[in-house]
Design a binder for these strands. Sequence first.
DNA 1: CTGAAAGCGCTTACAG
DNA 2: CTGAAAGCGCTTACAG
Lengths: 327, 327
Amino acid sequence: MTLRDVAARAGVSFKTVSNVINGHPHVTEATRGRVQDAIDALGYRPNQSARSLRHGRSGILALAVPELTSPYFAALASEAGRAAKEHGRVLVIEETLGDVEGERVALVDLTSRLVDGVILSPLVTPQEVVVERIGETPLVMLGEHRYAVRADHVGMDSVRAARELTEHLLATGRRRIAVVGRQDGGSTGGERWLGHVQALLAADLVPDSSLVARVKAYRRADGERAVRELLAAGARPDAVLCFNDLLALGAMHTLRQAGLAVPGDVAVAGFDDIEESRYAGLTTVAPDLPLLAREAVRLLVRRVENRTVPPALVEVPFRVEVRSSTA
Amino acid sequence: MTLRDVAARAGVSFKTVSNVINGHPHVTEATRGRVQDAIDALGYRPNQSARSLRHGRSGILALAVPELTSPYFAALASEAGRAAKEHGRVLVIEETLGDVEGERVALVDLTSRLVDGVILSPLVTPQEVVVERIGETPLVMLGEHRYAVRADHVGMDSVRAARELTEHLLATGRRRIAVVGRQDGGSTGGERWLGHVQALLAADLVPDSSLVARVKAYRRADGERAVRELLAAGARPDAVLCFNDLLALGAMHTLRQAGLAVPGDVAVAGFDDIEESRYAGLTTVAPDLPLLAREAVRLLVRRVENRTVPPALVEVPFRVEVRSSTA
DNA sequence: CTGAAAGCGCTTACAG
DNA sequence: CTGAAAGCGCTTACAG
């Protein structure tokens, strides 16, 4: 079932069929109609591999996220898939597992020939790798991890978000704010920590290192463990600021098991505004996720079309959603 | 950067390079080494579109699920992506939104030329559409919706699972078991309902239609609404059996808001064993999801390789995870 | 064990 | 406005 079959049936040259399919001008209405009828009758679909070979592009984009089982990234993938479809592209979702090797695979192997470009939500990718790939392949970076590279980037102002969230906690009278989510190595959380400290200092407070819990990953279990360890170490926070919602949900779980009331004894807040947070009454920073996804896809499509256009930095708005966990 | 460039650098014909890349025999070690050095030096990657055009296959598989924001389907997609990678394939995830058009797109458009085959988790696809596509394109069906078609299928025994879950509720002394999750149209939940009724009848009980809530979709909000309506209608269940975990989590939310203790006043149970359920202490049916995903991919790869092999029906084991919501 | 030819299905110039 | 040619990069027979 090829162009030639359709052409034979419609009684035209196969080039004319190609013109009809690609919506080129210079085809009479009558011819167009006849070709379209033949296409419909035969159920013809163009061979995408042949088109890709000819075009030098596959029409496939990739989104590389740490893990799809994180509700935030699942929602992001869903939105990005929709956006890709609107641009006539297909989206492949790649799980990096947040390790260097996974992110390298996404950046190097995947883009090598199958995919036209990659949207990467990096956790650990070192600067050099990004530098090496930029120029090699169209790339849009997501999130807080800012590289000293002129690359397309979409994210929210996490410093300001953390500052505003901390200000909210301070405004409700909290003074001993524990922080869950700093990490060794990865710079994730670096911006959120910075914003938090800015708010403390502005209120004439100083960070208390006995209230800071580091985590391995950003899952419920890490939030649970962090709070358990804080409490075991004798910390008595009146608020827990978590760097994402899963950490916060895990933290709430541990606090309640320890007999502490939320928000009576301890307020809890997070980042992301995943669906579960709405049900749990969790105060959180809500980025405009659909916009973030759409902008990332838009920038990537643009970059695929034109490798030389100057990189864009898009900042997506957010809101602090105040709910019962801090009210 | 093509085969020819590598060949030129290695001082062999480009056919020899092709042989090396594809691991064909009849290449001396010395030649292989020289070619490999050239490949590494140039950073050569084969053009996937050209390979696909030649092979008549893209190496891309699709997984079509109702929505990626459902934790169950996100986990499934994650596992299936891993499994596809183990087979040297790439997985495209398609959201059908659980409507006829979305599932048609997945079955017809996506498979038309880009993708070698589709794993479909259908909610509403009518029998005719499956019949039409089967034979046209490699297809593996997932879940409860059984079609009277000889198609590859992977699922758990939902009838038995619902029966066992109901038996558990009966064993803990519950007698007025509400059911949340029947649907108009879609046969989803049909098997679970059947298993539930079997267990009731075996215990000399009969289904009470005033305890059955229909839902539009399988999200938290639907579970909330269903229980709210049941309570408003004067129903006083001592258990709520929900056809998935999100419904159950929504149900628990409403029950607690209504001042009812779980499980003191009302037990709650679900299906899927999503991560949140472990934290919420929700009793649920836990299918072997990694196995389900791996088997689906395995069957699809097999089908792509051989269109005539007889269809396989794979049944995946499950466990009833008893937790505090029914204990 | 390696080389030259043909062709996968399409699109992009180029003629007419 | 439509047709004949060339070629995208690869692999698959087929020779040698």
